[in-house]
Nucleic acid binder design. Structure first.
Length: 992
RNA sequence: GCUCAAGUGGCGGAAUUGGUAGACGCGCUGGAUUCAAAAUCCAGUUCUUUCGGGAGUGUGGGUUCGAUUCCCACCUUGAGUACCA
């Protein structure tokens, strides 16, 4: 019987589906293990071979853990809300739910054919109302919570209200908006309910606020910071501008420190941790208040400008202040003489987009306000400037400028001729600022003079606090996350508006299902797409969504028109898988307590600061609310590397008549019969050679008269050829190329080939993309070589975490491995298995394979275990081994990687149960014990020859044998060695 | 600019605590089988060589009996990030 992958793979995929082989139970006496992939967004293009890489790795691990006796949860689902489906809906009018459904079907078919051991009974889709019901529910929990800094956790809003009622807000230590009025309990109790709501909104973990947002006019929505790359939208590359809008936000900043601390407790890749650390951007320093120098009347306090600085030790180096152009004090302090200049400058900077500002860091610009501030320690008057190098969104939007210690301040001061006092001992600042901290000694700084950085820093903060100028403070770069999107295809908010204040719909009436709309575009008056819905109002007496016409603002109210962002549904889905079909709860307590967290999470590094940060934030919140039992959702995370395509290029010529050449005939005649020409890659190595090859061809074929040979100019350009038309030897299928639907223009092209009539293409590694004709579809691979070969080959390409190129030709290696494996069992048509006792060599092969494969899987080094299988099968073939005692354990070892062939051969061996839970073979060291070792004999560290020696020999005996050996004498050529190093069982090294 | 990762044959890559560099596979060369091709099998394949050997893991140093592996400096490539006070 021949190895027939198509038949076998179909058979076992049906078997697994029918028997629900991989269905995980929430009740088991086995230890649990939870393996998760980052779920895909089901795009219209389907999967290419790069996508399943991580899924294959996690599947191998999941299957391995089942062999190791674990109860494995390995689910899959779809992140099915998102922009592409909506953009498609806008263009075609097709409902996004419809196209999403079609795309999911394609994904499912593609995933199924690769033989993943997913428990599909737990599938989730973020766009499914049964799922987003709970996304809405979490939103309500966030709305009903505030962050108590004293307890360092989120608490129910009712605890805050009860404090307000009893004590007002003076004792409350909360993470909240900046501009909160202070009130007593009496004042609170006298506030109108709308006023109370307004105040509470400033404390809630999700809240409405007028924020500067990144507005993308082309997409008609706001974008989060992580959705913008280089100043343009991540999807589509559209420009982004800043705009003030009322938006829902998430108070993620409350969790900044805990998100940072939590990184210490999880086994995630360092680069990923680094980028989260960077994104959170903790910096320690001080808040310092500078008084504005202005005449004050009796009952008026002078204005103060607060700045945040990480270098309070350099406070005596302050020679001016800079405010962001948007700073609220600018208009109040600007003097009349400077007003025109300042106004002009502000207008000019407002026009510059974020992108311009980023692209143009070098240009120094600013304006003097005419106002002065008082230096808190020296009492000196310092100028107050505005400049766009100070960002309104960070810190207080103002800086104390220390030109001697900060390059930006330095450049600004130089440019505007502001003094640059030097406060460092023995440091030259004539060329540049001195930003180093370590080893620097402060000078000219009153009580700080003579101190080193660390001491000066401490003392400065101490004095600032003592004299009441400010206080030590830790700042975070992490901003609260905007949570509203002006889109259709996302989760609706469970929110209606009464007297302009948001109200939560009672959780019992969820889900609030996305309404039908005529058009997916914003309304004509600029409202989000949900503004097009006719039935989108909340009836508070009937507790249901009703027609907008019924809105009376007494019992029927308008519903929120924004939808949630893409990261809402993905921030908690890993918890849902634990109890995916629970209609009554987010997930049962029993399920959550049993599975706890993801043990292994595999996905792309592009989610470092988006999904992975938001998901950690929600998990910590849910933990505070005692909804989930752990505060980090994934113990270990691996980023799989990207798979690149290996593009193929063909060289096309263009033949022109050289400019200014006067000849009798019309120029066209010289070249009119010359077809489009392609030149095989190895025929030339330079442009000159290329030209000669083409010319000779033309002359030879009489397409060009020798008289005109010097009149033509030949140019070369490389164009992409579809990789499916190229074989393993880089030879192009010429007919296939000519007949390719996209190559209509080349139907009549001529090909200058090699001597053997082959045509070679050039290769280059590029990102896999349609436009580069290098996309490889796994469907075709599965058809031709099978899922097992695809799985093995994806792993064989190289280390999981590395970026690596795909070259389909290499798959023949793993395919013939599978055939060789098959042949160990089958001799011709017959299954031939021996029940005899294995030989020592056979046992050695098996056990070194067990050892290596187990180590490899534990280290996620899947590429090397594929090599190990190949070595094992090669050795067993050489040993002509067909013994059950060897082949059965071998099948178990291979089954996580190539499950179909393993199941098939396992059943051929007479087993009726799936191989998937058979115990993993146990390594027995006794099978690898050797009596002799082929010692490398080195001279000065260089191996020159090897010598088979018994392992029983002592160092002295080894030395004697080696020194007497002819080859040793030849190497030494009569010299006496200075030293002989002998490491028994390892090496002999002769020095001298 | 800053942070991180990585540089090994024609190519993907291996060498797990410092101990035979190039495992395994692709490609290539030669051979067997075949009418022929595919498939399969066998042998060879880092470079160089006067066939004894010599050199060799981005470059230059260092530690060591011994370095792809550890240390220092530099070069190159890739990724992330970017006026964060």
């Amino acid at each position: 019987m021949q190895y027939n992958h198509q038949e076998i793979e179909k058979k076992w995929q049906e078997f697994w589906a029918e028997k629900q082989t991989f269905k995980a139970s929430n009740n088991s006496n086995k230890p649990k293990y939870y393996v998760l992939d980052m779920f895909p967004y089901p795009s219209g293009a389907g999967l290419h071979v790069g996508h399943p890489l991580g899924y294959i790795a996690s599947d191998i691990y999941a299957r391995y853990k089942r062999h190791k006796g674990f109860n494995v949860l390995h689910p899959q689902g779809y992140d099915s809300f998102g922009l592409p489906a909506e953009q498609y809906a806008i263009q075609t009018g097709q409902h996004p739910a419809k196209t999403t459904e079609v795309n999911i079907k394609t994904y499912r078919r593609q995933l199924d054919q690769i033989g993943f051991s997913f428990d599909w009974s737990r599938e989730v889709r973020t766009s499914n109302p049964e799922y987003y019901k709970w996304t809405q529910w979490i939103f309500i929990q966030l709305f009903n919570s505030w962050y108590n800094k004293d307890a360092d956790k989120a608490e129910d809003i009712t605890s805050l209200i009860s404090i307000f009622t009893k004590e007002g807000n003076k004792t409350v230590n909360a993470v909240c908006d900046d501009d909160i009025i202070s009130f007593s309990s009496d004042e609170w109790n006298d506030f109108s309910s709308v006023k109370q709501e307004e105040i509470l909104l400033q404390y809630r973990l999700t809240f409405l606020s007028d924020t500067e947002v990144n507005w993308c006019p082309a997409l008609g929505t706001v974008l989060a910071n992580d959705e913008i790359v280089n100043g343009v939208s991540e999807r589509g590359g559209h420009p982004v501008v800043r705009k003030k809008m009322t938006q829902w936000s998430m108070r993620i900043s409350a969790y900044a420190q805990r998100l940072l601390d939590g990184l210490q407790t999880i086994d995630w890749p360092q680069p990923l941790k680094d980028s989260q650390t960077n994104w959170i951007g903790r910096s320690q320093g001080a808040m310092v208040n500078f008084q504005v120098d202005e005449p004050t009347t009796n009952n008026q306090q002078p204005k103060t400008i607060s700045v945040f600085t990480t270098r309070p030790d350099t406070i005596f180096g302050v020679s001016f202040m800079t405010l962001a152009p948007e700073h609220e004090l600018v208009s109040q302090i600007t003097t009349d003489e400077q007003r025109v200049k300042v106004k002009t400058y502000i207008e000019a900077t407002a026009k510059r987009s974020e992108r311009d500002r980023m692209a143009d860091v070098k240009t120094i610009s600013g304006a003097f306000t005419g106002a002065y501030a008082i230096h808190p320690f020296t009492g000196e008057k310092i100028q107050i400037w505005i400049g766009d190098y100070v960002l309104a969104s960070y810190g207080t939007g103002a800086v104390m400028a220390v030109p001697c210690g900060d390059q930006r301040d330095y450049d600004f001061a130089k440019h505007f001729n502001i003094p640059i006092p030097n406060i460092f001992e023995n440091v030259d600042i004539s060329e540049a600022a001195h930003a180093d901290k370590e080893g620097t000694v402060i000078a000219n700084s009153d009580f700080l003079s003579g101190l080193k950085y660390k001491k000066a820093l401490k003392l400065a903060i101490y004095e600032i606090e003592k004299r009441g100028f400010g206080y030590g403070k830790t700042n975070y770069r992490l901003r609260d996350a905007v949570f509203s999107r002006q889109r259709y295809w996302g989760e609706p908010f469970p929110v209606y508006y009464k007297d302009g204040m948001p109200q939560m719909i009672d959780a019992g009436y969820l889900p609030i299902v996305l309404p039908e709309v005529e058009k997916y575009l914003p309304t004509e008056d600029g409202k989000p797409p949900l503004g097009n819905a006719d039935i989108w109002a909340w009836d508070t007496s009937a507790n249901k969504v009703v027609a907008n016409s019924k809105i009376d603002n007494t019992t029927v109210f308008p519903l929120e028109l924004n939808t949630m962002p893409g990261w809402a549904g993905s921030s908690w889905y890993f918890n849902r898988y634990m109890d995916a079909n629970n209609a009554n709860e987010f997930a049962s307590k029993e399920a959550l307590d049993y599975w706890k967290e993801v043990d292994l999470y595999i996905g792309g590094s592009e989610h470092a600061t988006g999904h992975l940060l938001y998901a950690r934030f929600w998990q910590k919140f849910l933990f505070d609310k005692e909804i989930v039992p752990v505060d980090e959702f994934a113990k270990k995370l691996i980023n799989q590397g990207m798979i690149l395509g290996t593009s193929a290029f063909v060289y096309k010529t263009s033949v022109f008549v050289k400019n200014g050449c006067a000849i009798d005939k019309s120029n066209d005649d010289v070249i009119e019969n010359i077809p489009t020409l392609f030149v095989s890659k190895t025929l030339f190595s330079s442009d000159d050679e290329f030209e000669n090859v083409v010319k000779n061809y033309l002359l030879d074929k009489k397409l060009l008269h020798p008289n005109y040979a010097d009149l033509v100019m030949i140019t070369k350009n490389a164009i992409h050829a579809d990789v499916s038309l190229v074989n393993a030897s880089d030879e192009l299928d010429i007919e296939g190329f000519k007949n390719h639907p996209l190559n209509q223009d080349y139907r009549d092209a001529a090909f200058i080939t090699e001597k053997d009539n082959t045509f070679k293409v050039a290769r280059e590694v590029e990102k896999m993309s349609k436009s580069k004709f290098n996309v490889v579809n796994p469907d075709l691979i599965c058809e031709e070589y099978g899922a097992d070969a695809l799985r093995l080959f994806e792993m064989f390409l190289g280390p999981l975490e590395q970026t690596k190129p795909w070259k389909t030709s290499g798959i023949s290696g793993v395919y013939s491995f599978l055939k060789k494996l098959w042949k160990l069992f089958y001799s011709g048509e017959n299954l031939e298995i021996s029940e005899e006792k294995p030989t020592k060599d056979e046992l050695k092969t098996l056990h070194k394979t067990i050892k290596k494969v187990e180590e490899d899987i534990e280290n996620f080094s899947f590429n090397t275990s594929v090599s190990t299988f190949m070595i094992a099968v090669n050795e067993l073939t050489a040993q002509k081994c067909n013994k059950r005692k060897i082949l059965e354990p071998l099948l178990v070892l291979i089954s996580p990687y190539a499950p179909h062939i393993a199941e098939e051969l396992w059943s051929q061996l007479g087993h009726t149960e799936s191989i998937s839970t058979v115990q993993f073979p146990v390594f027995e060291p006794k099978n690898l014990v050797e009596s002799a070792k082929n010692y490398p004999i080195s001279f000065n560290g260089k191996m020159r020859f090897t010598l088979e020696l018994s392992l029983d020999l002592s160092k002295e005996e080894i030395e004697k044998i080696v020194m007497e050996h002819d080859k040793t004498k030849a190497q030494l050529q009569g010299r006496t060695p200075k030293k002989v190093i002998i490491v028994p069982g390892k090496i002999v090294n002769i020095v001298g």
